[in-house]
Design a protein around this nucleic acid. Structure first.
Lengths: 235, 235
DNA sequence: ATTGATTTGTTCGTATGTATC
DNA sequence: GGATACATACGAACAAATCAA
């Protein structure tokens, strides 16, 4: 219930249906026909997405979002949704698609046993003809017995959702500056050793089990990662 | 109330008081003498910090945290708390401490009028003798009429908390790779044009008003930013 | 400047649904 | 199937911050 309401509010905000403030809780309760607790829970979701700031005694104010540049990748909503924002316009060229048994180093990164079998998908992604990133992703074959070529060429996440009902619900994210290896550099048409933004993600699905690791190098000019930190507070 | 409980649980987790699971909600209710709603609210806070994964019908499992390397900066808890983790061991050398009227470019970044008066604090920070980062911070003099030399040499955030009851509650964060200017390079003892990790933060306090902007260049070897994304879910 | 109404923040109690064991 | 444990929802009350008369 509160999920639907949260999504509805998010969509309305993105459509600009509200001016600067959200309606009051009372009005939202009436509009959706639910209790105050449910409305507040829905608003928690929206707030945690960074779309609102809340002021006691006054109301919920809509945050001006950071300039929606193609060069800004929003990581606030978690992996699943970050994909939808800018990544919908990305085109992919599959470089590698096979099964591998991960070596010791990768196994340690993912906290899986040495030699665990995984799908490996390497994709070169572009935005309107300009190289965007080189993505190297691994999926547990134990959880995802079959991964099709169509899915890899299209959207892997929607395939996983539709076929296996697997959706990333949480992730561990590491950001660093890395220097391109010869292989990476040639694919990305960059000098060897060039310093680029690098994002490593460990993705977990509903019940908290690990299912995917990916490491992505971003070369799009002026690329930034953005996220809004709005802890539920505790100090 | 739920803030204190959340903090207590966080501390207990960090001390290793629990093995792999948290006690059940029932037991926590009894232990803290509060209702289930309050316990769940507290657990929401802990969860959102990335310390737990929740499995319906089973329990709350404690996440193994990423290796607590000095080279990993945890951004999950929001600005205020990220400071406490690794930054307590940082030593600061103040490079610049003055008042300025921000120019057009900076004013636009911060969404304040041109020429707004702000404190400027530039600090070179080290970890155990090794250069860590170069931090350039701006504070609205309108909100913080007086900022002392002692505070700048020590912890600015605790000063703001104790003196003005100002604590960052949310922030907009931008991560990018930047090349060092001549000034930055000489301070950081690096070659000019060296590519380093850069973090820009807009910090907001309780009622959602902006009070601080900072841009920090990190040069610590192997530095990584870490954050755990655990949305309240909405899909 | 004080008061009173509005609006969000916190906490309690209770009931029912759903996943796990 | 039954017991346990977390997820969701409703209703109610009071506190605290804001705002307008």
């Amino acid at each position: 219930m509160y999920h639907e309401i949260a999504n509805d509010i998010i969509n309305k905000i993105n459509q600009g249906d509200f001016d600067t403030k959200l309606p009051t809780e009372q009005e939202l309760m009436a509009r959706y026909g639910v209790s105050r607790n449910t409305i507040r829970r829905a608003i928690d979701v929206v707030y945690q997405r960074g779309l609102l700031r809340r002021v006691q005694g006054s109301g919920y104010y809509i945050n001006r979002q950071p300039s929606a540049s193609k060069a800004i990748m929003n990581l606030s909503a978690g992996t699943g949704n970050a994909m939808h924002s800018a990544e919908t316009h990305l085109t992919s060229k599959v470089v590698t698609f096979d099964k591998v048994n991960v070596d010791h180093e990768y196994a340690r990164l993912m906290h899986v046993p040495d030699g665990t079998e995984m799908y490996r998908v390497v994709r070169l992604r572009s935005l309107e003809g300009e190289l965007y990133c080189l993505e190297q992703a691994y999926f547990l074959t134990k959880l995802i017995p079959v991964l099709t070529v169509e899915a890899v060429n299209d959207s892997i996440l929607t395939f996983l959702k539709e076929t296996y009902a697997i959706t990333p619900t949480s992730s561990d994210d590491f950001v660093s500056v890395e220097q391109l290896t010869a292989d990476q550099a040639s694919l990305l048409e960059r000098p060897v050793g060039d310093s680029v933004l690098c994002l490593s993600q460990l993705n977990y699905c509903g019940n908290g089990t690990f299912f995917n690791y990916s490491i992505t190098h971003y070369v799009y000019p002026g690329i930034h990662f953005y996220f809004h930190a709005a802890p539920l507070a505790s100090n």
